[in-house]
């Protein structure tokens, strides 16, 4: 295990971005993700990259928009209130079909809330916090290793589909240090003939979301986007089913809350209670089919979130019998407790 290093989630993410070929980072400080910009400020100059602290989250996401339009692999990171500010830019990025990676290390909300880890931005992430008919790919790491691995994947997915890939972590994942094996670059290269590089020997390129004339042109764009989103839904659903084959009860969670659920599953299994965990790795596209399969024979489904109930709506939409779906959540930076999960599962009885 000599290739393992102890690394903080936020820093693992930064290093993974560099491994993935990201050479441009624009951001604005906000706790609990400050180690990401600090890491990029330290490391990017070493690899010939550019780090720029923007004057605001709005400016940062628009710098990302510009750098992406120029054809670069680019990233920004923030935490919940800052991600709210970026929504305008994310909508434009979707409309202009630009690839980028955005990191949300979620904290408690609404408003200024607090700085502890939370999962209160699931709706904002999966429903689109900006205006218009658009989607973004949402990856939900649960460990430092996954923070790094999914970051490398994120850049490839962003370029492949020309979409925003949102890495949805939380304050605990940002701050935790764990063993990490650094990921390897995938080596995938994506042509970007649409990029703005100067119209030398070609017709001018235009990067824009505006579609005024003819009247139907915006719908045409939206239908193109829709086809792309359908393709993403068909090909990019990711999840993990842990001890679900014989499970009478199923826990559904993602990120930090899924770690707590896994602990509860292990402890309940030791007591002979057949419980499994279904863990999202993509929140959009939501892995509905895999969940349906894992949930099919279970008696009860307990959705566990660090919010007062957001992902549960996707769970209810996915399973055959939504009456089976129960909820346990803590919010405002509090963590669900293993003992409470165990108590509830036991209370379901037979």
């Amino acid at each position: 295990m000599s290739d393992q290093i102890l690394m903080k989630g936020n820093e693992a993410l930064g290093e993974a971005a560099i491994i993935a070929g990201c050479r441009f980072y624009f951001g604005y400080p906000i706790t609990p993700q400050n180690e990401v910009p600090a890491y990029m400020a330290r490391r990017l100059p070493d690899v010939g990259g550019t780090f720029l602290q923007a004057e605001s989250e709005i400016a940062a996401i628009n710098m990302v928009y510009g750098a992406s339009a120029a054809g670069a692999r680019v990233m920004t990171s923030s935490s919940s209130p800052g991600i709210s500010l970026k929504q305008e830019g994310l909508s434009y990025i979707a409309g202009a079909e630009l690839p980028c990676v955005v990191v949300n290390i979620m904290r408690g909300g609404p408003g200024l809330g607090n700085i502890a880890g939370s999962q209160g931005d699931y709706f904002q992430s999966t429903r689109g916090g900006g205006n218009g008919d658009y989607r973004q790919l949402v990856l939900t790491p649960a460990t430092v290793q996954e923070m790094a691995d999914l970051t490398v994947l994120a850049f490839d997915l962003a370029d492949k589909y020309r979409v925003t890939v949102l890495i949805l972590g939380d304050g605990y994942l940002g701050q935790i240090s764990e063993a990490l094996t650094l990921p390897k670059p995938t080596g995938k290269v994506f042509d970007k003939p649409w990029a703005l590089t100067g119209a030398k020997g070609r017709k001018p390129n235009k990067v824009a979301s505006l579609r005024l004339v003819p009247e139907s042109s915006l719908e045409e764009l939206n239908l193109v986007l829709d086809e792309k989103y359908k393709s993403i839904s068909a090909n990019e659903c990711r999840s993990e089913s842990y001890l679900t084959d014989d499970a009478d009860y199923l826990l559904v969670a993602y990120g930090t809350s899924s770690r707590i659920c896994r602990e509860a599953v292990n402890e309940l299994r030791e007591e002979g209670i057949k419980v499994g965990l279904f863990r999202l790795i993509t929140a959009w596209p939501f892995p509905a089919e895999a969940l349906r399969k894992a949930a099919d024979k279970t008696k009860k489904i307990l959705t566990v979130e660090m919010s007062l109930g957001q992902m549960i709506e996707d769970v209810q939409l996915s399973v055959k019998d939504s009456d089976k779906v129960d909820f346990y959540g803590r919010s405002g930076g509090m963590l669900p407790e293993t003992d409470e999960i165990k108590r509830r599962i036991k209370a379901y009885g037979n």
């Binding site: 295990m1 102890l6 700085i115 701050q175 935790i176 764990e178 063993a179």
Partner: peptide
Amino acid sequence: MNENKYVSHIPSYG
């Protein structure tokens, strides 16, 4: 970690 144990470390922050 170097003895192949699982480890996690999280500081108080902010």
